[in-house]
């Protein structure tokens, strides 16, 4: 995924309107782009071409269903560890070796390693955390989500 900002002239006003409009979700219908195109006053074919170009230049990562992995079954847990600086790289190798570790970030804090465990079944989380504790000799703090609130994130293009 592109992690650098696009040059300011990469998008024209229509691209920006498309980006802003299509973040809100399209109805699940046979021709999902048709109604959005009408609202944007664009031919359907041009809307589709612009979405394809936005993907090519990396302005969007994808267009499609946003799946809730948890609703499909499976368990996730944010975890954190305090890793001594002189052991950090060795611990990264041990933690990342587990296939259950989906993301892992170094963060500027006493708790300096934050990762997400993703397992097929809830009991897999505790097992993976215990394996990491056994391999590293460090405590894994677990922060499972207890409630979810996000709905509003929109990137203004």
């Amino acid at each position: 995924m592109r992690r650098a900002a696009l040059p300011p002239d990469a998008l024209d006003a229509t691209d920006r309107a498309v980006l802003n409009a299509l973040q809100d979700g399209l109805p699940v219908t046979a021709r999902p782009f048709a109604e959005a195109a009408r609202q944007l006053a664009l031919p359907e074919s041009e809307l589709i071409e612009r979405v394809a170009r936005l993907r090519e230049i990396g302005a969007i990562t994808r267009f499609g269903p946003f799946y809730d992995a948890e609703a499909m079954g499976g368990a996730f847990c944010l975890c954190a560890m305090e890793v001594p600086a002189d052991r950090f790289d060795a611990v990264v190798t041990l933690v990342n070796a587990l296939p259950e570790v989906a993301h892992n970030y170094e963060r500027a804090h006493r708790l300096n390693m934050w990762f997400v465990l993703a397992c097929e079944k809830p009991e897999g989380i505790a097992k993976a955390a215990k394996r990491i504790e056994g391999a590293t000799g460090l405590t894994v703090l677990r922060f499972p989500k207890e409630n979810e609130f996000f709905i509003g994130f929109r990137v203004k293009a």
Binding site: M1, L19, L22, I57, F66
Partner: peptide, 12 residues
């Protein structure tokens, strides 16, 4: 959750 475009917020 929805069928939508996923902006690359870094690129934007």
């Amino acid at each position: 959750r929805r069928v939508a475009l996923a902006p690359n917020h870094y690129a934007l």
